[in-house]
């Protein structure tokens, strides 16, 4: 293993986050806090409890997931898209690093950043609403697995995208709608019966449900289903990344 290279890529990416602190940390934390104020504080006080949890607290896991998904994807996609766009990727391709090491560096850094963000949002949320975490180990597991999986997805998008529009396309048109419709702001049984079934086709439902279970002990779908779904995602993303490197798709003609 070329540990120096992994460390170099990882540090470079973390330094980029520090340089752009406002954009990478402050802005997502602020925007999520606005959700707490509006939905948790202002509107949430008029909504009855869900499964014995106040609405303000109920939306916290979903909001963390929302931020985790979008930030993982945007961090990792930009990290690999930009060198491709500016041409500096030549150095990465000519270096004695394996594909696995490249992914470890970039995806590791992107996942680290979104986990830090997730924890910051959790900390911020606890200032607004009373929170308990029923299963902290599971919470950490879901947090970590989701961050890694969606950073991998971001990496794939960054390789696939050949312009800035495509880079924004998947996060805006796929991830955000799926997250909003994935039970971030409601429990599935609040939907009409038909939509309760349709929504089960939305993968984000399983992520939010599992994560929420680790906080409050109640879930829309079984925890096993949530875990299976995220592991399935992870496997699919790993498969695609392996294929990208094997074929040189869009990076090594």
């Amino acid at each position: 293993m070329n540990w120096y290279a992994i460390r170099t890529i990882y540090r470079f990416e973390m330094a980029r986050a520090r340089r752009t602190l406002l954009q990478s940390i402050v802005s997502p934390v602020l925007s999520t806090s606005l959700y707490f104020v509006v939905f948790g504080g202002a509107i949430g006080s008029r909504i009855t409890q869900i499964d014995g949890v106040s609405y303000g607290a109920f939306i916290v896991p979903g909001l963390i997931m929302l931020m985790l998904l979008t930030q993982s994807v945007s961090n990792a996609s930009f990290a690999i898209f930009f060198p491709k766009f500016s041409g500096t990727i030549y150095e990465l391709l000519s270096a004695p690093v394996s594909h696995f090491e490249i992914v470890l560096g970039y995806v590791g850094a992107a996942a680290t950043k979104s986990i830090i963000l997730g924890l910051l949002i959790l900390g911020t949320a606890s200032l607004f609403v009373p929170l308990t975490i029923a299963h902290p180990v599971w919470m950490a597991l879901f947090l970590g697995l989701t961050a890694v999986t969606f950073s991998l997805l971001g990496f794939i998008i960054g390789i696939w995208a050949d312009n800035f529009e495509k880079l924004q396309l998947v996060p805006l048109l796929v991830i955000t709608p799926l997250t909003f419709l994935g039970g971030t702001f409601y429990a599935i049984d609040m939907l009409p019966p038909l939509w309760q079934t349709v929504t089960l086709a939305n993968p984000v439902v399983y992520l939010v449900s599992g994560f929420r279970w680790s906080f409050f002990g109640s879930a829309d779908v079984s925890v096993a289903a949530s875990l299976a779904m995220i592991l399935l995602f992870l496997t699919v993303c790993l498969g695609i990344v392996a294929w990208i490197f094997r074929t040189g798709y869009r990076i090594r003609p």
């Binding site: 120096y4 890529i9 540090r11 470079f12 340089r19 500016s86 041409g87 500096t88």
Partner: peptide, 21 residues
């Protein structure tokens, strides 16, 4: 091609690390 916002020292050190030194 260059990482526009990096310093000369950092970008050259980055290259060394990337090559496993």
């Amino acid at each position: 091609t260059s990482e526009a916002f990096e310093t000369v020292w950092n970008t050259v050190s980055f290259s060394r690390g990337l090559f496993g030194k």
